[in-house]
Amino acid sequence: MDVLIHLFVGLHIVGIAALLGGFLTQMKAMGRGTARFVPGMLHGALTMLVTGVALLGLNQADDHHINTVKIGVKLALLIVILGLVYVKRDEERIDKGQFALVGLLTTVNIFIAVLWT
C-alpha cells in the first residue's frame, strides 16, 4: 500500500508542477497584460484533484490519521483554482488579478501541504 501511496504523491507533485510551471511561464506575459491559462495548467489542476482524492482514500484505507480540516482547506483552494482556470481557459487574455490569484492560491496550497502538520 505504501508504494501505491508514494506513486500517487509523485503524481500529485507532477500536477502541482504543471499548474505552477504554467503560471510561471506566463509571468512575463502577465506583465504585458497578455497572459492566458495554458492547457497544462488545467491538466495540472485536474491531476491534483484526482490524485488528491485517491490519496485521501488510500490513506484512509491504510488507517492513517486524516486531518480533515487541512484537506478541506486544500480542496477549497483547488476548487477555486480549477474553476478560474476552467472558465477562462479559452480566453486570449486574462485579467492580471485573476491570473495572479491562481498563482497565489497554488503557492498557498503548496505551503499548506508542507507546513501544516
Rank of each mutant, 00 (worst) to 15 (best):
Y86S: 13
D2Q: 06
H43E: 09
E91M: 14
N59F: 02
A54F: 12
T25A: 07
L115V: 02
L20Y: 00
I81W: 06
F37H: 09
A100S: 11
L101M: 14
V50Q: 04
A61H: 10
V80H: 01
L46S: 05
V108Q: 02
I5N: 02
L4F: 00
G40D: 12
T106G: 15
I81R: 06
L104Y: 03
F23R: 00
I71S: 01
T51I: 08
R32Q: 15
A76N: 05
L84M: 15
F111E: 02
V69T: 15
L7P: 03
I13Q: 00
M41Y: 09
I13W: 08
G103W: 01
I16A: 12
L49W: 08
M1S: 04
G22T: 11
L55E: 04
L115N: 04
L56W: 13
G97S: 06
K28V: 12
V73P: 01
Q60E: 14
L84Y: 05
V87W: 14
I94M: 05
L19F: 04
A113F: 07
M27A: 13
V108D: 01
A18I: 05
A100K: 06
A61E: 09
I5G: 02
A100W: 07
V14Y: 02
I71N: 05
I110P: 05
G31L: 13
T47G: 15
Y86H: 15
F111M: 11
T51P: 12
R32K: 14
H6Y: 13
W116I: 00
L7K: 00
E91T: 14
L84V: 07
L55W: 02
A17K: 01
Q60D: 11
T47W: 11
T117D: 07
L24S: 10
M27Y: 11
G21K: 05
H12Q: 11
E92N: 04
G44W: 02
V108C: 05
V85A: 03
M30I: 04
G31H: 11
V80Q: 00
I110F: 14
L105Y: 03
V85K: 05
V50G: 06
V102M: 09
A18H: 06
G72S: 13
R32W: 03
G103A: 02
H64I: 03
L24H: 06
L11E: 06
G33D: 12
V102L: 02
L75I: 14
T47C: 13
G52C: 07
I81F: 08
I79D: 02
V9C: 01
K96L: 13
G72N: 10
L84G: 03
R89C: 08
E92F: 01
P39G: 05
A29N: 13
G15Q: 07
L46E: 10
D90H: 13
G83N: 14
D63W: 12
N59R: 15
M27D: 00
L56E: 12
V50P: 02
A29M: 11
G97E: 07
I110D: 03
L78G: 01
L58G: 10
L19Y: 03
T25R: 10
D2F: 08
L42D: 04
